[in-house]
Simulated scan of single mutants.
Amino acid sequence: MGGYQSFGIIIPIFLTSFHILTLVSATHPLDPLTPFELTQVQTLVKKSHKNVTFHYVGLDDPPKSEVQSCLSSQNRPNNFLNCPRRAFVIARTNSRSHEITIDLSKNSILNDKVYNGNGYPMLNNEEQTEASELPLKYPPFKASIAKRGLNISEVMCEAFTIGWYGEMNTKRVVAIMCYYIDGTVNFYMRPIDGVMATVDLDEMKIVDYRD
């Protein structure tokens, strides 16, 4: 009976250890980044840049030859722990977009270049939320809401990209559209027509307002 009890204790310990191992290290060269690796990326980038925002973090896919080598029989006993792991990051700091490649195996930044082409990184949740809240504290917007006889506590706003139409010089801005909730779950059915704000995401302020 004691043997069965010991075996019953060993299984949960083994499963817990396996779960912790998979959180720390990938078990295949093409596995997504683990929570440990994501923290590693965040630490390295924040050491290199101040006031940085992350817009993409993912696995930098290794060349096919590296994957084939890692999948060969001679490497299998090592559970792929010796396979090179790299991460690719798109981040914003000082109004510039950075493309960063990180060697996770060596815990170092391999490449960090400023992107000067057309377009900007995707929006992240934090900046969308902050930009969407700006009109609610903006006096001209509050006056527009009062003029329509609406309760500003029932107003919510969302940020939308405005597109790129071939301009040489652009800023990273979004259009803010607002809606009136007033008890409905489908606020998209109640847009506040005629009102639009434009927010500069780098300066995080309203740069144009129309009513």
Rank of each mutant, 00 (worst) to 15 (best):
M1S: 10
Y4Q: 07
S6A: 04
F7R: 04
I9F: 00
I10M: 02
I13T: 05
F14Y: 03
T16G: 12
S17F: 02
F18M: 07
F18D: 10
H19L: 10
I20Y: 06
T22E: 11
T22W: 00
L23T: 07
L23F: 03
P29D: 14
L30N: 14
D31V: 05
P35Q: 09
F36G: 01
T39C: 04
T39G: 12
Q40R: 12
V41I: 11
Q42Y: 08
Q42R: 08
L44V: 06
F54S: 06
F54K: 03
F54R: 04
G58D: 12
P63F: 06
K64G: 12
K64N: 14
S65W: 06
L71R: 09
S72H: 12
S72A: 14
R76K: 13
R76C: 09
R76M: 11
R76D: 09
P77N: 10
P77T: 11
N79H: 10
C83I: 06
R85A: 09
R85E: 12
R86A: 13
R86S: 15
A87L: 11
F88L: 13
F88C: 05
V89R: 03
I90K: 10
I90L: 11
I90V: 15
R92G: 03
R92E: 14
S95R: 15
R96I: 01
S97L: 00
I100L: 05
I102V: 12
D103Q: 10
D103P: 08
D103V: 03
S105N: 13
S105W: 05
K106L: 15
N111L: 13
V114M: 07
G117S: 05
N118T: 08
G119F: 00
T129A: 07
A131C: 06
A131V: 01
L136K: 15
K137Q: 15
A146P: 03
R148D: 12
I152L: 09
E154Y: 09
V155Y: 05
V155D: 10
C157T: 08
E158V: 08
T161A: 11
G163K: 10
W164H: 14
W164C: 07
Y165H: 14
Y165I: 07
E167S: 13
N169Q: 15
V174G: 05
I176Q: 00
I176T: 00
M177F: 04
Y179H: 04
Y179S: 02
Y179I: 01
Y180M: 01
D182K: 15
D182H: 13
G183Q: 05
G183R: 00
T184C: 02
T184W: 00
F187K: 04
Y188C: 00
M189F: 00
R190K: 14
I192Q: 01
D193R: 06
M196N: 09
A197C: 13
T198M: 12
T198V: 15
V199I: 05
D200S: 08
M204Q: 12
M204F: 02
K205T: 10
V207R: 03
V207F: 01
V207W: 01
R210N: 12
R210V: 04
D211S: 12
